[in-house]
Structures are given as structure tokens and as C-alpha cells.
Lab assay of single mutants.
Amino acid sequence: NITYDSTPEDVKTWLQSKGFNPVTVNSLGVLNGAQLFSLNKDELRTVCPEGARVYSQIT
């Protein structure tokens, strides 16, 4: 699982392990844990089509 202390590499690995598509992995894999957790559902949806699914995994 990812935490606020996760590195971008951790986030990328976590996204891949959850089966998100490469677009999602590449879009969000540049963020660290704190940055990812700071995004709300609408912001995640704006960044990638699977944003709502990512949001449900981190809340």
C-alpha cells in the first residue's frame, strides 16, 4: 500500500500492481504519496480516465 511518505517510484509500482492502465500509471506515477493523496476525485478524473477508480483505492 502507499502512504504519505511513498516515493513516486512506490506510487508507480502500486498503480501497476492494482492493474491500472499505462496512461494512468504514467500520469500519476510522477507524484509522491502526499501529492497523490492531496488530489480529490474530480482532479484525479481530470488527469486520467481511471481517476475515479484511483480515488476509491486511496480513500
Score class of each variant (00 low, 15 high):
N32T: 10
A34G: 09
N26G: 13
D42Q: 13
P8L: 02
N32C: 07
T13K: 15
L44N: 02
D10C: 09
R45C: 15
K12D: 01
G51P: 06
N26K: 13
L28G: 02
Q35P: 00
T3Q: 07
P8M: 06
W14G: 03
L28S: 01
V30E: 14
T24W: 00
E9H: 15
V25L: 09
Q16D: 10
Y4A: 14
K12N: 04
S17P: 00
G33R: 01
Q16M: 08
S56M: 07
E43Y: 08
D10Y: 04
T24Q: 01
G29H: 00
T46A: 14
I58H: 01
Y4H: 04
E50D: 06
V30W: 11
L31W: 04
L28N: 12
G51I: 01
K12I: 05
V54L: 05
V30L: 13
A34W: 09
T46E: 13
G33K: 02
P8F: 01
G33S: 02
I58K: 06
K41E: 14
N32G: 09
Y55P: 03
G19S: 07
Q35H: 06
Y55C: 07
W14H: 05
G19A: 07
P49G: 09
Y55S: 08
D10R: 07
A34L: 11
Q16E: 13
T7F: 04
T46W: 06
L44T: 03
N26V: 06
L36M: 13
W14S: 03
V54A: 05
R45F: 10
L15F: 01
P22Y: 11
N26T: 12
C48L: 06
N26C: 03
T13V: 10
Y4V: 15
L36P: 02
N32L: 00
T3N: 15
F37E: 04
T3C: 11
Q57K: 11
T13C: 13
Q16L: 13
C48M: 02
R53W: 09
G51M: 05
Y4I: 15
Y55W: 15
L39P: 01
W14F: 09
I58C: 10
A52I: 05
L15V: 03
L28F: 04
L28T: 02
P22L: 11
K18D: 06
A52P: 12
S6T: 04
N21C: 11
G29D: 04
K41T: 05
L31V: 02
S27P: 01
Y55V: 06
C48P: 01
L44F: 11
G33H: 02
S38K: 15
S38E: 15
P22C: 11
V11H: 00
Q16G: 08
W14P: 04
L31H: 05
K12E: 06
L15H: 00
Q35M: 08
I58M: 12
S17R: 12
E9Y: 10
T3M: 08
G33F: 01
G29S: 08
Y4F: 14
S17W: 13
P8K: 09
F37Q: 07
V54K: 02
K41I: 15
G29F: 00
F37N: 04
G51Y: 05
P8A: 14
Y4N: 07
K12Q: 10
V54R: 02
R45L: 09
S6M: 03
D10Q: 12
F37C: 10
S56T: 11
N1T: 12
G19M: 05
N21Q: 15
G19E: 07
V25E: 04
L36D: 04
G19W: 02
N26I: 08
Q35C: 06
D5R: 12
Q57C: 12
P49S: 12
E9Q: 12
V23C: 09
L31Y: 15
I2T: 03
A52Q: 11
N32M: 01
I2V: 03
S17V: 13
L44I: 11
N1K: 13
G29M: 02
Y55T: 05
P49N: 07
A52V: 10
S27Q: 12
L39D: 00
S38V: 04
N1Y: 09
V25D: 05
F20V: 05
V23G: 08
G51E: 01
L28P: 01
Q35E: 13
S6A: 07
W14T: 04
Y55I: 09
G51A: 07
L31R: 05
L15K: 02
A34C: 08
E43D: 10
D42E: 12
K41R: 12
Y55Q: 05
D10A: 13
T46I: 12
T7Y: 05
N40D: 04
V25C: 14
S56L: 06
T3K: 09
L15Q: 00
D42Y: 07
I58Y: 01
V30R: 13
P8C: 10
S27C: 13
D42L: 08
N32K: 06
G33V: 01
Y4W: 12
Y55E: 11
S38Q: 13
S6R: 00
K12A: 11
K41G: 10
P8H: 06
R53C: 09
V30A: 11
K18Q: 15
T7A: 10
Y4R: 11
K12H: 07
I2R: 00
T3H: 08
G19L: 05
T24K: 00
S38H: 07
S17T: 09
Q57V: 13
V11F: 01
G29A: 06
G33A: 07
R45K: 15
G33Y: 00
P49T: 07
K18H: 08
E9P: 06
Q57Y: 07
C48T: 12
T59D: 12
S27A: 13
T7V: 07
Y55R: 07
I2C: 03
Y4E: 11
K12G: 07
F37L: 15
L31G: 03
D5F: 07
A52L: 13
A52N: 06
K18M: 14
T46S: 12
N26E: 12
P49L: 07
A34S: 14
T59E: 05
D42V: 08
S38M: 13
R45I: 12
S38R: 13
T13H: 11
R45P: 06
S6N: 02
A34N: 09
L36G: 02
Y4K: 13
V54M: 03
C48H: 06
V23R: 10
G19K: 09
F37H: 10
P49D: 10
N32E: 04
T7G: 09
S56Y: 11
A52M: 15
T7N: 11
N32R: 07
T3L: 04
F37Y: 09
S17D: 11
S6L: 00
V11P: 01
Q35Y: 00
N1S: 14
F37I: 09
V30D: 09
W14C: 02
L28K: 00
N21R: 08
T24I: 05
G19V: 00
V23Q: 09
L15P: 03
N32A: 07
N21P: 04
K41S: 10
L31C: 06
R45G: 15
T7M: 05
D10V: 06
E50K: 02
Y55A: 09
I58N: 04
R53V: 12
V30S: 14
G33W: 03
V23P: 10
E50L: 00
K12Y: 05
Q35L: 03
K18E: 12
V11R: 01
V11G: 02
I2M: 08
C48R: 03
Q57T: 12
S6E: 01
E9T: 12
S27I: 09
P49K: 07
W14A: 04
F37G: 05
A52S: 14
K18W: 07
S56A: 11
Y4G: 07
K18A: 11
S27D: 02
Q16A: 13
V25Y: 03
V23H: 15
P22T: 13
G33D: 04
E43N: 09
A34F: 10
K41N: 07
D10W: 01
Q16R: 11
